[in-house]
Amino acid sequence: MKKITALIIAFVMIISLAGCGAGNGSEPAGEATSDADGSGVTQAGGSDGTQPAGTEGKKILTVYFSSANTAAVDAVSSATPSVKNMGSTEYIAVYINSKVGGDIAKITPVKDYPESYNGTLDAAKAERDGDERPEFRNLDVSPEDYDVIFVGYPMWWYTLPMIMYTFFDTYDFSGKTIIPFNTHEGSGDGGTYNEIREFEPDATVYDGLAVRGGSAEKSDEDIDKWLAGLGY
């Protein structure tokens, strides 16, 4: 019995060491991000360790997708709080825009998501399982005209909402700087920053900011720190 137990433990440890060798797929490239204050906010560094593009003379856009169903939010679940009457991703997008300047644009689906939070959950899952590309309404801006694009989204079923796939399919950000930010309720960035790098191999994609949706309204300081690190 003892021998068997010892063998099992040894076997498990070997497997887990092999697993750790294979690496955590979602670790961002470049500098490791750290959850310094444990609030669920990961700080970013430049992907090559240097200060990213400065703010002078650069056209900046903050474009984001945020759940439209702020009215029907379950206050108890705190997954997407009605922060000042907007979704948590929108809240952060508006805040970033107020700090960095430039333009701001919201990605709105052509076909609205259901009113209820659960309805949106089901719709999002169906889209993800079907690898769909939901259409979004025309933005008032042309994202390709900008130099620095902040891109924000919530985590839907542990990854990018499918509408963000449509977004990256639509535009070519070659030669541009993309700075992602996202909200989540436990999945961090879930490897999505790396996914964006795959969508836009000729863009410079920085390690972004992952904010716990439930703490969005308390994150102003963390966002400030992150932006300062980026040179804004």
């Binding site: 440890m13 887990s16 979602s26 670790e27 750290s34 705190s78 997954a79 436990g186 961090g188 879930g190």
Partner: peptide
């Protein structure tokens, strides 16, 4: 807690050992 919190920073071996 209505959503799973995944600590992607945590080393894989540590996750497994903690489960044990």
């Amino acid at each position: 807690t209505r959503f799973a919190f995944f600590d992607y920073e945590k080393n894989s071996a540590v996750v497994i050992i903690e489960n044990m």
